[in-house]
Each structure stands twice: as structure tokens, then as C-alpha cells.
Nucleic acid binder design. Sequence first.
DNA 1: CACCTATATTGACATCCATCAATATTGCCG
DNA 2: CGGCAATATTGATGGATGTCAATATAGGTG
Lengths: 119, 119
Amino acid sequence: MVPMTASDTRTRGTDDVCCVPTAVPGLSAEEAARHVLVFKALSDPNRLRLLSIVKAGNDGEACVCDLTAPLDLGQPTVSHHLRILVDAGLLQREKRGTWAFYSLVPGSLERIAATLSGI
Amino acid sequence: MVPMTASDTRTRGTDDVCCVPTAVPGLSAEEAARHVLVFKALSDPNRLRLLSIVKAGNDGEACVCDLTAPLDLGQPTVSHHLRILVDAGLLQREKRGTWAFYSLVPGSLERIAATLSGI
DNA sequence: CACCTATATTGACATCCATCAATATTGCCG
DNA sequence: CGGCAATATTGATGGATGTCAATATAGGTG
């Protein structure tokens, strides 16, 4: 194998060399672990639908009982998903009387889009 | 409980009613299932780091042997993650000689950002 | 062809996660 | 206070997933 340093800027082709670590390490393990929390929250189809329904709801909010029927899921499961979305910073909860109303955290989706660019 | 139709535009408060399905159903189950594939691919810290290293690599590409060491993972595991990223449409693979070079699919991150807005 | 290197695939295993049933909590109303 | 309605929590369970060891494939070189 031909030796090749990290500062070598040649494009590597078939007859060239490989396995030269780049100078830029990319995302650290800590940054990656932080970013992944949001994507994990988005990694369930029912949670995507929850976000969608909440966003489309009256005044941009919806209560749990609005969300159980369209998803064909039990109430505890919906509460579970909502908790994950709140923990990820995507939804916020406001209790009014017996009901809990969920709404999008302003700017949260835009913040995720920015995270994507920074990857 | 006070009856309330779906076309009622009042804001629901403590002394009001709940459980009125919205006219707009939000994301369908099929759309959600399709969108979730990409977010699942982004839901692993090592895969985020792979994307980051590939993007920062020389000519925006990197081969598998560039990726094994910084992640402290075995080569089969790295290949496994790369496959998931390719299947999700985030990376593309080009084989040159013995080596396989991976690079970002142009516009893929921007497309995900657009997906987020459409949720 | 024989051998080596880089990458991919397979199988096994431990862990995580979505879901539900059952139960607890909270708040309203009589 | 007693009861009811809405939501949250807990425990259990089946299925998905990340990881590795072992093996297979493909391409280059002698």
C-alpha cells in the first residue's frame, strides 16, 4: 500500500490507498447521543400522526381523547407516546380541568431541521 | 356535557367540552409509515456519526475502513449501519476496486427538513 | 490458480420498545 | 364526602434492533 497522510488532498481511486482518518472527527459521541433523542421520538408512525393531528387541531392543540380514536390505540398507549414527545421537547402539555391539552412547542420542528443541516 | 360539533370554532376551556374529532385527519397511517423509515435510520447515534464523518470526508465521501476506527465498532456492524442509511435514501454506495465509498445523497437532508414542515 | 484484503451476509444473543390490561391519580360535581 | 370522567402509571409480553463472531463474496496480486 502506498502511504498517504491525512493532509493528502488527492481523490482516492482504485489504484490508490484507503483508511486514512480525516482530520475532522465529525459528531462526537455526546453530540450524537443528544441529537438522537429527538429522532427516536420521531421514529414511530403513531407519534408522527400524533404530531400531525395536534398541529392540525383547533388552536393548534388537542386533548388525549381527541387522539385515541383516530389512531386506534388504547388511551394508556397514547399517553405513553405523548410523554415521549414531551420529553423530546416537541410537545408541551397544559392541563385545563380534567383535560390535558397538547400543542407543538414553537420552533421545535425548525430546530430539528437546523440540527439536520449541522450533522 | 355540552354538545359541540366539529365545525364549532370555540376554544375549549375548563368548563367546555372535549373529544370532538377534527375535520382534518392529519397524516394517514401510510404516510406516517413511509416517513418513519427515514427517522428510524437517524435514530442511532452511531449512524448520525457515520453521516457526519462521510459528509466531512474528502470529496464528501468515505470508505468503510475510514469509519470503523472512529466509531469503535466492528466492521460488520458498520456495514450494517451503512446499509440502513442507504436503504433510507441518505447515503449512496460506489464501489471502486476493493473499496466501497459512501457519500450523502444530494438533497436528502433537505428533503427530510421539508418532510418535517409537512407533518 | 492461490492468497490476501476489503466488504457484505448470516446467525445468535441481549436489550430496547410498542402495546395492552390493570390500577392509580387528579379534578369536577352531586 | 362519594362517585364519575379524563389522564397517568405500572407490569407483563411479544417483537424489533444493535452488536459481535463466524463465514461468504469480490477484487487485486503474486
